[in-house]
Every structure is written in C-alpha cells, then in structure tokens.
Design a protein around this nucleic acid. Structure first.
Lengths: 198, 198, 198, 198
DNA sequence: CAGTAAACGAGACGGTACGTCCCGTCTTATG
DNA sequence: CATAAGACGGGACGTACCGTCTCGTTTACTG
C-alpha cells in the first residue's frame, strides 16, 4: 500500500547508460520511418515498438507520451538549408527554390508535412513544431532578400515575408493542391515572377 | 403469402423513401460537423451515430464503411463560387481571392482541407475527392483569366494555371504554413503582383 | 403530424376475413414448428415471418407481442389424454404412464417443455401456460386414483398428488436428468412401485 | 534488442500471473451471478463485462466465446455432497434428499438447471456439462444404496439407478412441474415410499 | 568483481471503434 | 384496409488496435 515514490536520487536521466542511448536511437529511427511512410496517423507507440523491436515499456520510459515522441521525431525534419550567395538575388532565390522543390519531390517531407499542418490546427504542441520547421525553411529566403535590399538590388519597401509567400506558396500549391509535376520550368517561372516586382 | 418479386415502377432501391432521405441527411450533417471540429481522424462511425441519433446499423445500411461515409461527406465540401464579371481582370481576381480568403478564415474548410490533403497522399479515393474540390475552386479563376486573354486585357502566352498558382499559392501558404493573418492588404498585394505580370 | 388514431369502428377483430384466418393459421403452424425444433429461444417474430412467408407486420397485427404469440402457440401443446378405464388401478396408471412416456420419447414435447419451465422461472405469463399444461397432464392421473379410492381399490389416506409425483417424477427425471432410455420396463417398474404403496 | 526466446522455468502461459487469476475469478463470479438471476439467456459478454468491471477484451482473452465462458461458469455448479453415514439407509437417503431439497429451494441452482437442461437438448457441450452435474448429484445416492445392499439392509436385485429416480424424480417434479412447495413432509414421504420397496 | 538499481521484454488490462448479425417496432406503398 | 417490403433503433457479437501498467529477467554501473 505504501506507494514508495521512485527514489531516483541524482541523475534525472542517465544518458550515459549505453542501453538507453541505443534504445532512444533505435526508437527514433523507427518513428521517423513510420512517419515518412504513413504520416502522423501511422505513428502509434505500438507500431514503433513492433518495428523497432524495443518494448513499449521502454519507449514510455523515455518519452512521456506518444505526442512527445512525435515531437521529438518531427524535430529532426527541419530544413537547415545554407544561405547561398551567387551574386544575384535571382540566383540565390533560384538556388533556394530548387532546393525546396527537390525536397518536395522526395518522400519524407512531402508526405508528412500535411499531417503536421493538419494536426497543428488542433494541437498546440504540434503547431509549435510546425512553426519551427517553417521558420527554418523560411530563414534563408528572408536572408537573401534582406541582403539584396541592403545592397540596393531590390526595393526597400517590400516586406520579405511577402516575397517568401510568393515563392513558397506556388511551390506548395503545386505539390499538394493541384498535384501537377513540380518541374524546373515552373520553379524558374515562379522566381522570375517574383524578381520582376523588385 | 406469395412473395411476388417487385416488378413495379418504383426503383428497387428506395431513395424515394422519406425515412431514408432523412437518415442520410442527418448522418451527413453530423459527419460534416465532426469533420470540421476534429478533422478526418475524429470521424468515427460510433461518434457520428451518437451525435446524429441515427443507429450505427442504419449508417452501415447506407454506406458500406467509414471510408465511404467520409468520402461522401467530403464531397459536399466543394467551392462552387460564381464566376464574377466586374469588367476588369483585377476586379474579377480580387473578388475571387477575397472569396477564398473568406473561406480560409472560417472554420470548416480551413480545418479539414489539410486532413484531406494528407490522406490524399496515401489514399486514392480521397485523392480523387481532393482533385474535385480543387478543380471546383480553380475553375472560376481560369475562366476570368481566359476571358481577359480573349478580350486582350492580358497576354496570351501565360498559362492560366500559373496565374491560379500565383494567387492561391500565397493565400494557402499564409493560412497553413506561416499562419499569419490573412488580411485584406495581403490579398490585394497578391492580386496586384499577379496583375503586374500580365 | 396529426396522428389519427385507428378509427376501427365496430368489429374488434375481423375473424371472418378469410385472409386473417389464413394468416393466423399459417403463423401458428410455423411457430409451432420452430418451437419444437429450437425451443422457445428459437422463436423470434423474424424467424416465424421468414418460415411462414407472412410479413412481420401482419404477425404483430394479430398478436400484440412475441410473448403473446408464444403463449398462443404453447397453448396448443396441452395433453388432453382421455381418462382410461381398464378395471384396475394398475392398468389405468400403466396406460397413462405409457402415454406420457410415448410423448416424452418424441420430439415436440420433450424438446420444448424444458424451455417453458425455464422461462416460467422468470415470466409470469409463461408460468401460467406451464401450469395449464401440467394441470391437463395431471388431471387423468388424479381421476383414476380417486376413482380407485372410491371403489376401495386404494387406501383413502393417500394424497393423489403424491401418487402423480411418484409416477411422473421418475419419468421426467429419466428423460431430462439422467437421459437414460425411457423403456417399457422402466415405466412398468415405476407403476409397480407406486401400486405397492396403495 | 535481441529477442531471446524464453527458455526459463516459468511456464509460457501465465496462469500464475496474479492479474490473470484475478480477472478470471471476477469474470466467473459475475457470470455466475447473472446466470442465477437471468438464466443462460441473460448471460451476454457485454453484461458480464459491465457487471464485473472487467473489459470485454480481457474476457475474450481468456475465453474464446460466450459459449466457452458459459460452459466454464456452469461447470462450477456441481453438487459435491458428502456421502452420509447415519447407520440406516433411511437416514442416509433422508439426509441426501433434504440436501437436494434445500438446494432446490434456494435460487441459483433451481433457476439455472432448467436453462441447462433445455440447452442440453440442442447443444452437445452443455449436454456434457449437464451430465457431469447430474453424475455428481447422483453419486452419493448410489453409494449409500450400494453400501446398504452389501450390508444386507436392502435387497440386492434392485438397480440403484431406479432408487435414485424414485427419490430425485418426485423432488424435481415438485419443484419444476407442479410448483408446489417442497416441504419436509413431502421429502420424508418420498423416502419412506422408496424404503418400503427394499 | 560482485550486488544492486535500472533498464528492459513480455504481455495483461481497460478502452474505443470496427463491421456484422439479428430482433422488435414502425413506416410506406401496393393490392 | 389487410398485406408485403423493408427502414429504423437497439443490443450483442467477436476483432483489432492503442496507451497504460505490472510483472519477472537481464544488464551495466558502482562500491
């Protein structure tokens, strides 16, 4: 009856334990796999356990809930593109746009982002994740635009955010809404269109 | 006693039966409600039954599975905007863009479409539904652009589909990706930008 | 909305209508069949309807509920044995006992009575039916015993009801509890045993 | 990670698991309760689950079907009376007969046995259960009769099974068929009658 | 280098939903 | 207006997962 509380004295989580590290890594890998194959909905602790071979108990020992695991795995989906410097704004934007288009054409990202966006409508935590992913993706675009503005290659009055919208918007639209192929011609046309306003 | 087989004028499946119509309508309404509140994942047959007051049996009498019900309910989410005629292409596009922005600002649509887009990545049927919704939404945009091209108010060489992408893309991006407010200023700027290329 | 109450003017039930008579008869026959094949539990209005070809609506028109139909059908299961007069009490009892044993060996009765007895434990109406069936069955036994007592062929002090118990009890026991064959030797032994006490 | 197959002392099927034992016991108790209150027909897995507080899933984990659960619960209804030894056959028989009469007067047994007997007419498994219950009940009767025969207190020629029929038959008849009270006088009279033939 | 604390695997449990079957009632339409 | 056809609400069935929790075993750090 005496429900002795875990007398875990000092180390809050023993990250040094090799077993722990192995478990965590295996689980996250399996989660990521599932995520890219079946979207958020396909990630259940059961499924992760089965695929990874790690017992459900162990998973719950390291993440307090399914959401937490999801969060952790999603965090590994950010963009982290380098800010390019080709000399011209058009060149920089095209480089970035091609990069994004490339990711949109391959599985993991394009299949999972809608899941996350959907969930973000109803779940605050995932909305946070989505915001982070979006911020990472947007950052280099803003950077090149602002640099161009400072160098006088673009008008000052334009809000960089709108530029980003004008580039990413049509790309996303093409991938997820109209579902037409995201070919290079289209990407170039989008960039060209944006440049023409600056 | 003699069980004569129906050889009557009335169709064998009784879509005319008022009870059937009532049931179907009630169920679809409840499904739609749930859909807009909790997304695709929140629609379970049990929940629909509870909310609508229609017995689960009856639901399965009219739809063979949860998916079928979902399909049917999603099908009722199309746009059906009228093609406007303000005299200028800018006026027409603004009218349409405001219309879309309006829907994006209110619950049902904006909350559910990501669900559908996500599912469409993995489910052929829902991909079809999504295609239909998209086509309905896109149609008036293409119509006004083509009319303007015929009247010489816009260059002929431009593919209307790209115009649509340039209008809808940023709107969607703003609503679902950057999650910034979709104010009128933004909408007007988007349209202005598009016009400037024609 | 105006739920006009049935304006059934005069004849409480139109037994003269040939359709009604035909329906009632067909339904009761089918009910009896089901009863003897599957016991009380096997008699559902659905099943009766299917087997008889008479629509459920019609059945409910003539019997207010499943129980009522059951009651009616069970009523047709009474014994109605004639009171024999062989000259000796032993002869009379043997005649009656053989008669009962005969019924116990054939399907309808033996298969259904346990159903009724079971239901009688929990349902007052069926308890009534069971009482009637039992009374009909017991009556000739009591009659021959009392006649013998009046003629001085049997002691006066014995309660006829106990005689009946001593005859019917072992027969029923044999059929339903020990499930050994109810052969003539056994029946005779039972009667012989009873006689020896008088 | 390495899923080494159990090669341990502990039995693979965990009947020793305290949770399993608890669940099984709770479920069987609830089943028994329902059985005695509403008969076989009143025992639904849903009802058992509700009353016991054990999840339906868990019930199906331990019994493959409703029937199996029923079987198991019925099996716990046997008699297991001790074989008495009062010195005289009459004393022994009276002891046993009073014991049976006592059970017949109280709820569980008397309410359920007809259910079982009825089902036994159509279901082989339940017929087996019924046979076992009957055998247990009959055994001590046969034992005392045979002992008396060996000690010369009763004629050798009589088949003990017929003695049992002559005792149990009237008792059962009285309880279930004539539904008259099973008072001590009646029980004594039945035994007296049987004794007089030996 | 042994002992102990923890990490772990296995799986029992409560729960929700699924899709099916059948029943008793009620509605509609046909003759 | 008796009837046939069948829609409807309801309840139970048996299954599939899921997230939580309780075991007993094994493994790695520490005294």
């Amino acid at each position: 009856m005496v429900t002795r509380k875990r007398a875990l004295k000092a180390p809050p989580d023993s990250d040094t334990d090799s077993r722990v590290q192995r478990s965590k890594h295996t689980v996250l890998a399996a989660t990521y796999e599932l995520l890219t194959q079946s979207g958020l909905a396909g990630v259940s602790v059961d499924a992760v356990s089965k695929r990874s071979g790690v017992a459900k108990t162990t998973i719950y020992r390291h993440w307090p809930s399914r959401s937490a695991l999801l969060l952790d795995a999603c965090s590994r989906m950010g963009s982290r593109a380098q800010t390019p410097d080709t000399g011209t704004l058009r060149g920089d934007l095209e480089t970035l746009a091609f990069h994004v288009a490339g990711r949109l054409r391959t599985a993991p990202w394009a299949a999972v982002l809608p899941s996350i966006i959907d969930a973000a409508e109803r779940d605050a935590d995932l909305a946070g994740v989505q915001a982070r992913i979006h911020a990472e993706m947007r950052y280099p675009f803003c950077a090149v635009v602002e640099r161009a503005q400072q160098k006088g290659q673009a008008r000052r009055g334009v809000n960089p955010a709108e530029i980003v919208a004008a580039v990413l918007g049509p790309l996303f639209y093409r991938r997820w809404f109209s579902r037409e192929p995201l070919d290079d011609t289209f990407v170039k046309a989008v960039v060209q269109n944006v440049i023409s306003q600056l």
